[in-house]
Design a binder for these strands. Structure first.
Lengths: 116, 116
DNA sequence: AAAGATCGTTTCGGCCCCGTATCTTTGCCG
DNA sequence: CGGCAAAGATACGGGGCCGAAACGATCTTT
């Protein structure tokens, strides 16, 4: 069940969502942070720094820093892997789930408003 | 003709588009810059600094700086208003139109890939 | 023409992100 | 054990964006 979307609708949707986020007072995540957060909440665990770095095609420090920031926001939690202590497993939080859920609702609402 | 989208589809779409942008080598615009650029290309002209600032609910320096950056990328052009020289009219460029068009195509493509 | 309002820009100090290189901890294997 | 590899974090210099305030240029009003 692909979603059918014309380019003008896609652009208008993106604009409306960006405007909603910019106008609102929500914490301002960068595109990379957003990609990481959504991957953690949509793709099946476990999530490691290395795995995320490979999936996003960025270096490991990028992931570490993004996790620092999003840990500060309580959107994710770090957890040492017991079976291999070198690994850090990234886990979801209630606050992060709420943020992601709210964001999805914003996209759905703006999509429903499209008319063209 | 609203676009029907379920939350899980909306989030997956956003993730896939963010991943496409992060992985690619395209110039990295902030959420604010994206909102400004899309507004310039989707909403009818004329576009002024003050008008954009009000529409995004941000201060004027935010707009000035974003226009500086996007002018450097050739995505927009500044143009003094002849009838009131205090105003700056923001105009579109070929490069900007190409960038916006390509971005819309990315969103459409990722939407078409959704399955859930 | 002088005073005041409007528009966009600039300045300032501060913060966060970037990429590269280096470091620490941990696991692996001879 | 000792050396090496792997995972993640940290250090460093650089650059961009931030909000608030001050600035110069241009209308508008009186």
């Amino acid at each position: 069940m692909p979603v059918i979307l014309r380019p003008s609708q896609a652009l208008r949707l993106w604009q409306q969502v960006c405007l909603s986020e910019v106008r609102g007072a929500m914490p301002d995540l960068t595109e990379r942070q957003m990609a990481i957060l959504l991957t953690i909440y949509l793709d099946p665990p476990p999530h490691t720094v290395r795995g995320l770095a490979e999936k996003l095609n960025v270096t490991k420090p990028v992931i570490t820093r993004a996790l620092d920031t999003m840990s500060g926001l309580k959107f994710v939690k770090r957890h040492r892997d017991a079976s291999d202590r070198r690994n850090v497993l990234v886990r979801r939080t209630v606050e992060g789930a709420l943020f992601v859920e709210r964001f999805g609702d914003v996209v759905v609402a703006r999509a429903a408003e499209l008319s063209l």
